Computed example of a mutant assay.
Amino acid sequence: MSEKKLDLINVGRITAVFGIKGWVKVHSYTEPQENLFEYHPWWLKTAHGVKKVEIDDARPHGDAFVAHIVGVDDRDLAMEFTGFDIAIERDLMPELDDGEYYWSQLEGLAVYTQFSGTRQRLGIVSKLFETGANDVLVVVGDAESIDQKERLVPYVPEQFVLSVDLTAGEILVDWDPEF
């Protein structure tokens, strides 16, 4: 029997232990955050590969959540899971409408600007973050970019982000390279 290669996407992180009965604190990357618990199983990304776990209970706690991993019933065992990213199989993610993208689809794409009519490579998307008003692309210089600067480009379609081409692996922006 051949084992299929897992196509995983990070959806959260175990940040700390909680209490003495094996519970862990969890930070969710999903929107809304409680959607994290709709996905089963979780795959924890450890230094020794991925480990499949199931959650049998979870609840909000402050600005994050606490959860109980099946078979983990004491603090010391729970401690072994802290610091691990939580991933799920990509095909569990809901389909998005045209023009909508998961952050994980944008990370690693090459970013080109056509500011002042000349196409120039600014670098690659290293990550994204939220500001409240809009998401922001963190673009870092690479071997093919015009320089090694880090740029923060607002993810505002039609204003700064002109197109996203997942097939070509690139994003076209209208952004002054001086910023």
Score class of each variant (00 low, 15 high):
residue 54 E to C: 09
residue 87 A to T: 12
residue 126 S to F: 05
residue 75 R to I: 09
residue 99 G to C: 01
residue 61 H to K: 07
residue 90 R to G: 02
residue 79 M to I: 01
residue 47 A to K: 10
residue 86 I to H: 05
residue 57 D to E: 13
residue 39 Y to W: 10
residue 90 R to W: 09
residue 114 Q to R: 15
residue 81 F to P: 06
residue 131 T to Q: 08
residue 49 G to M: 04
residue 91 D to H: 15
residue 53 V to D: 02
residue 44 L to Y: 07
residue 112 Y to Q: 02
residue 39 Y to H: 12
residue 149 K to M: 07
residue 152 L to N: 12
residue 31 E to Y: 08
residue 80 E to L: 14
residue 36 L to H: 03
residue 57 D to R: 14
residue 71 G to W: 00
residue 141 G to R: 02
residue 96 L to M: 12
residue 132 G to Y: 11
residue 144 E to R: 11
residue 104 S to M: 00
residue 66 V to F: 02
residue 78 A to H: 06
residue 143 A to G: 02
residue 130 E to A: 14
residue 117 G to V: 06
residue 50 V to A: 07
residue 88 I to K: 02
residue 56 D to R: 05
residue 95 E to K: 12
residue 73 D to A: 11
residue 113 T to V: 05
residue 89 E to K: 04
residue 118 T to L: 14
residue 137 L to W: 01
residue 61 H to A: 14
residue 142 D to M: 00
residue 57 D to H: 09
residue 135 D to M: 15
residue 115 F to M: 11
residue 84 F to W: 10
residue 123 G to R: 10
residue 142 D to G: 00
residue 111 V to S: 06
residue 122 L to E: 10
residue 147 D to N: 15
residue 93 M to G: 08
residue 146 I to K: 11
residue 153 V to F: 06
residue 58 A to E: 08
residue 40 H to V: 11
residue 72 V to A: 04
residue 92 L to V: 01
residue 44 L to W: 10
residue 148 Q to C: 00
residue 34 E to F: 12
residue 80 E to S: 15
residue 31 E to I: 12
residue 108 G to D: 08
residue 48 H to T: 11
residue 106 L to W: 09
residue 118 T to Q: 15
residue 114 Q to S: 09
residue 137 L to C: 01
residue 87 A to L: 13
residue 89 E to D: 15
residue 119 R to S: 14
residue 118 T to H: 12
residue 79 M to L: 13
residue 88 I to C: 05
residue 60 P to Y: 13
residue 57 D to M: 10
residue 152 L to T: 02
residue 48 H to G: 07
residue 114 Q to H: 09
residue 148 Q to W: 00
residue 51 K to Q: 12
residue 97 D to V: 05
residue 115 F to W: 15
residue 37 F to T: 10
residue 61 H to T: 04
residue 110 A to L: 02
residue 114 Q to E: 13
residue 68 H to G: 10
residue 117 G to S: 11
residue 36 L to G: 05
residue 126 S to H: 09
residue 135 D to N: 14
residue 46 T to C: 05
residue 54 E to H: 13
residue 77 L to H: 12
residue 133 A to N: 13
residue 107 E to C: 11
residue 119 R to Q: 14
residue 64 A to W: 01
residue 38 E to Q: 13
residue 83 G to Y: 02
residue 149 K to D: 05
residue 98 D to I: 08
